[in-house]
Write a protein that binds this DNA or RNA. Structure first.
Length: 600
RNA sequence: CGGGGAGUGGCUCAGCCUGGUAGAGCACCUGGUUCGGGACCAGGGGGUCGGAGGUUCAAAUCCUCUCUCCCCGACCA
């Protein structure tokens, strides 16, 4: 049994000024965490208990499909050079040298390391499939840590890796993780959605994120309320309605028009009394192409000019653009670069007469057009000349391109992309709590993992990679359920399941009743905290509400009559219960919560 | 890295513009009165004003440099 008077639970009346999001404020106020530096936090006893409970659930579920490892966080350079990520990870990797001057890094993910184990030990298809996981501290030198535990530089991750003989096997491993992840998040009391996602730096084909809707999140999710389609905005597509085309003027060929001071799309649209959808906008980038790795691990990276053209009312999706180009990084062009590539100024850039490369990221300019320009006619675009535009511009007839691709972000209200679905997309903010990838052969190939197949032939196993952010589960749970007084965690992850508040410890009878009740609850298998502090009742109620414990039992005035109050934190409802029934009632409530989870 | 903001007892902040004895509330310690939704009274402890340099008889306050943290944009669990 734990007594509040003996525990270190430093609650705060006011949130420190630099906390902005709810979970950050409450984690600090409830005495779960204290900050040590930007994106670096101390976990205090209450926080540690909650995280341990989450880890327990993750471990229990993961053990159903995989085996737990524990790899080092301090890693030598070599495996990273083999995969190409020693340079590929860039500044996000914490690097250090040992006393001999050898390069080391702090692990930010462990594909490489797991692969070294696999290639050292796996010899036969008979040993596959394997699912290996660990729960371990990760280090990432984030450009901008923020929002308390939401984005930090040191965090706990459950990372798992699968090795299969073929893609059918990978599909199965992927589905196993999908199912187990759903079970984990449900047991943690999260209302989550699984969405299609971009694979990013991990590489690979298919990936799916698990998200919890919250304004504190950093991702946007497009979803269809009708059919259940859901995708990260980085990946989402939509069905566009028809656009009313402009009527051609003159001979129907591109015609230069004088448009002084109309560098913005809104201006030119108003001037020509047309919709921005009739305009072709240009966003000019410099894209970084990674060169092949040299023997010493170094690379020659090069920058290439890219002109992206899309509908005037659409926004570039840089994630999609990166993917379409096969580039590593993007930055917008400087004025001199614009002049050099377009011979024209920003605001008046256009595709007509633009020379472009045949292949992406070549010597000259890469012209990429968005698919939403397919089949469009009589559009308006910049003339690559200050204060001039063209009209009557038809893609394909009046200009060509290096490649066409989906490079725009969908907007709320656009049509659901699923065949036959008439739904309209809605966009919401969310935080990512888990991500599962089909990696493919990226690591097994580059690092030389081979096994013999049934025919005695060497084959390369196919891999998957699967992550869960442990602290993110806690953070998302708090974001999901909080009010003015604090937050409420599911019994499964709360540091304590029930707190017994003895309203007046000066009263020996009350104190004894509380002690006895606590012992009984503990005997019933519940995590119980006895608030035996010599504080006024109000202080103890406030603290109990603050720290997220789902059930509270008030031992007060009515105790003499054999009655206590059972208060549910989530609904703030209380019922009077007989002292001899309260243990069974709390137990039943907690068990019902579990049942509810299982039925998901 | 670009842009914006902040560093003053443990927490929230005032003081800075216009240089002149470092303050309030909460928290903490002692005593008393209270005791079901963050009590009250009295007394008390605690601060190199982020750091360095400069201007000045005198710097929390003015100047220069620097460090740290937070927020907005490119990354991801």
């Amino acid at each position: 049994m734990h007594r509040w008077s003996k525990l270190f639970i430093p609650t705060l009346r006011e949130a420190p000024a630099d906390a902005e999001v709810a979970s950050h404020k409450f984690l600090l106020r409830a005495g779960y965490i204290r900050q040590l530096g930007a994106g670096i936090y101390n976990y205090l006893p209450l926080g540690q208990r909650a995280l341990n409970k989450i880890i327990g659930i993750v471990r229990e579920e993961m053990d159903k499909i995989g085996q737990e490892f524990y790899l080092p966080a301090l890693l030598p350079k070599e495996p990273w050079e083999e995969s190409g990520r020693w340079t590929g990870m860039g500044d996000n990797m914490f690097r250090l040298k040992d006393r001999k001057g050898a390069d080391l890094c702090l692990g930010m993910t462990h594909e490489e390391i797991m692969t070294t184990i696999a290639r050292g030990e796996l010899r036969s298809y008979k040993q596959l499939p394997q699912i290996w996981y660990q729960i371990q501290t990760k280090f990432r030198d984030e450009p901008r840590p923020k929002s308390g535990l939401l984005r930090v530089r040191q965090f706990i991750m459950k990372d798992a890796y699968s090795f299969d003989i073929d893609s059918a096997g990978l599909d199965k491993s992927f589905d196993l993780h999908d199912a187990v992840y759903r079970a984990i998040f449900t047991r943690c009391g999260l209302k989550f959605v699984a969405v299609e996602a971009d694979s990013g730096a991990m590489g690979g084909s298919q990936s799916q994120e698990f998200m919890v809707y919250t304004d504190a999140g950093e991702d946007f999710i497009a979803s269809c309320p009708l059919c259940g389609y859901a995708a990260n905005l980085e990946k989402a597509t939509s069905l566009l309605g028809p656009v009313e085309e402009l009527v051609a003027t003159g001979d129907g060929k591109p015609e230069e028009i004088h448009t002084p001071g109309m560098g913005a799309i809104a201006d030119i649209a108003a001037f020509l009394k047309m919709s921005p959808a009739n305009d072709i906008k240009c966003v000019a980038y410099m894209a970084l192409k990674r060169g092949p790795a040299a023997k010493d691990g170094s690379r020659k990276d090069t920058w290439h000019g890219v002109a992206a053209f899309l509908r005037g009312d659409h926004q570039v999706n840089e994630t999609k653009l990166l993917g379409a180009l096969g580039a590593a990084e993007l930055r917008t062009m400087q004025a001199e670069e614009l002049q050099q590539c377009f011979n024209g100024p920003a605001g008046y850039l256009g595709p007509v007469g633009l020379k472009h490369d045949a292949e992406p990221l070549g010597e000259g300019l890469t012209v990429i057009v968005d698919r939403a320009l397919d089949g469009r006619i009589n559009m308006v675009c910049g003339a690559n000349q200050l204060d001039y535009h063209y009209r009557n511009v038809t893609p394909g007839r009046d200009f060509t391109w290096t490649l066409a691709a989906d490079i725009r972000s969908v907007n709320e209200g656009e049509g659901c992309p699923k065949d036959g679905c008439a739904g309209k997309l809605v966009v919401g903010k969310a935080v990512e709590i888990g991500h599962i990838f089909k990696l493919g052969y990226k690591y097994s190939e580059s690092m030389g993992l081979r096994v013999l197949d049934p025919n005695g032939k060497e084959v390369t196993p196919i891999m998957g990679s699967y992550g869960i952010g442990i602290e993110r589960i806690l953070t998302a749970a708090i974001e999901q359920e909080n009010d003015a007084n604090g937050f409420c965690l599911a019994a499964s992850i709360a540091p304590f399941t029930v707190v017994i508040t003895v309203t007046n410890v000066g009263d020996a009878a009350l104190r004894e009743t509380g002690e006895k009740l606590a012992a009984e609850l503990e005997a019933a298998g519940l995590d119980v905290l006895l608030d035996d502090r010599d504080e006024r009742a109000g202080v103890k109620f406030k603290d109990a509400d603050l720290v997220g414990i789902p059930y509270r039992i008030n031992v007060g005035k009515k105790a003499a009559a054999g009655q206590v109050e059972l208060v549910a934190r989530s609904t703030s409802t209380s019922v009077d219960v007989g002292l001899n029934e309260v243990v069974a009632l709390v137990k039943r409530r907690v068990d019902e919560e579990k049942l509810l989870e299982d039925s998901h």
